[in-house]
Structure formats: structure tokens, C-alpha cells
């Protein structure tokens, strides 16, 4: 079944970030039909994220969250705006992912803030982050300031973004997009590069 992972970095319970995440999730599920949704509340993983930073390996719950991201066909990533950017907690989660985990994955970016003056955060902070991680960011990002909630414009933007995400999630990766893909540690465990090839690579021949 198609799977969707939703990352929400809100800090309070009943957070507007989670509210936006739920809106986007509902709209995506509506577009896709049958889909398995895993919601990852980063607040619950805050300690394990710090521990991972220090020890280099995830605790059980964080490990499950990372695995959900690895398996997901698409991701909705929602952060509150802190100091003109994504929150540190949000960034930490994407910092601890293994290299290549987001390669080619469709991502819908969204953010909440107290004021509409932060609306460009999607384009100056979130898009570059996910571009660097080789994710495919859907064209429409969704930003919601306090006064956007309840406004029908937000619903409309959410529906459009969700439609774009659903469309990308429905597509199998093309042969050209996988041809140049980097090998992850998992790939290497599954099919190790034979030693003679390692030796040739080492010597650059």
C-alpha cells in the first residue's frame, strides 16, 4: 500500500503546526484514496534526537520513525517558524537521517507562524534543505499564520499542495531518475560491491 509519513514539529499539544499537518494529511488521503499514514510528532522524540546526535544511533521510537520515513512514498513536513527559519527540533530530525534516505521522495513543505511576515520561510529555508537532501519538493508549499486558520484560502492551498503530492506519490520512479542514484548503506548490505571492484575504485582506475 502507498505510505505517507507526516512529520510535525509543533511543541504544544493541540499545536497549530499539528493542525496544519492534519489538514494536509486529510487532503492528501482524499486525493490518493487508500494510503497508510504514519504521523511523527517530533516533540515525543526530542530526547532521543539529542541522544542520537551524541551517540550516533537512534533509540527504539526514533528508529521506528526513521524507518517510516525510509518506507514512505511521500512526506508531509510541517514546522513552526522559530527565529525566521524551521525549528531546531525539525532540523535535527532531518540531520540524523542516513544519507540518501530522501533521494527522489516527494515532500510537501509547510510551516506555521504567528505572523504572515514569515511566509517566505518555505522558500528560503525549507526548499533549500530538501533540495540538498535530494527530495522532490512539490511546487505549492503551505504557510499558515494565525489568522489563516479558518480562512478558506488555506483550505484551497492545502488541497492544491496535497493534489500535487498525491500525483508525485502515484508515479513510479523513472529509469533515468534511478540510474544515477547513489547507493545507500542498505543497498550495500543487500548487495555488497565485490572486492575487485572496490580495489579498482580505490585506485581510481
Amino acid at each position: 500500500m502507498t505510505s505517507l509519513a507526516v512529520v510535525s514539529a509543533g511543541l504544544s499539544t493541540a499545536s497549530s503546526t499539528r493542525l496544519l499537518a492534519n489538514t494536509l494529511t486529510a487532503a492528501t488521503v482524499e486525493s490518493l484514496g487508500e494510503v497508510e499514514v504514519t504521523t511523527i510528532e517530533l516533540r515525543d522524540l526530542a530526547h532521543q534526537l539529542t541522544d542520537h546526535m551524541l551517540t550516533g544511533f537512534p533509540g527504539v521510537k526514533l528508529g521506528e520513525a526513521i524507518e517510516a520515513i525510509r518506507r514512505a512514498d511521500g512526506i508531509i513536513a510541517v514546522t513552526p517558524v522559530f527565529a525566521a527559519s524551521y525549528s531546531g527540533l525539525f532540523k535535527t530530525f532531518f540531520d540524523v537521517l542516513d544519507e540518501g534516505v530522501l533521494d527522489g521522495k516527494p515532500v510537501l513543505v509547510a510551516a506555521t507562524a504567528g505572523t504572515a511576515r514569515h511566509s517566505l520561510v518555505l522558500d528560503h529555508a525549507l526548499r533549500p534543505l530538501f533540495s540538498y537532501l535530494h527530495a522532490v519538493v512539490v511546487p505549492t508549499g503551505v504557510f499558515a499564520a494565525i489568522d489563516d486558520f479558518g480562512d478558506e484560502g488555506l483550505e484551497r492551498r492545502a488541497a492544491r499542495a496535497a493534489g500535487e503530492l498525491a500525483e508525485l506519490m502515484g508515479k513510479a520512479p523513472s529509469a533515468t531518475s534511478t540510474a544515477g542514484a547513489r547507493r545507500t548503506v542498505e543497498d550495500e548490505f543487500a548487495a555488497p560491491t565485490p572486492f575487485h571492484q572496490l580495489l579498482r575504485q580505490a585506485s581510481g582506475t
Binding site: 548503506v185 550495500e188 548490505f189 555488497p192 560491491t193 565485490p194 572486492f195 572496490l198
Partner: peptide, 12 residues
């Protein structure tokens, strides 16, 4: 710790 290439090297 976690480099499959080194396991392959040792095995070779």
C-alpha cells in the same frame, strides 16, 4: 562499525 565494504575486504 557499519561499512559493508570493510566486511567485504576482511572476507576477501
Amino acid at each position: 562499525i557499519r561499512s559493508p565494504e570493510i566486511a567485504e575486504q576482511a572476507a576477501f
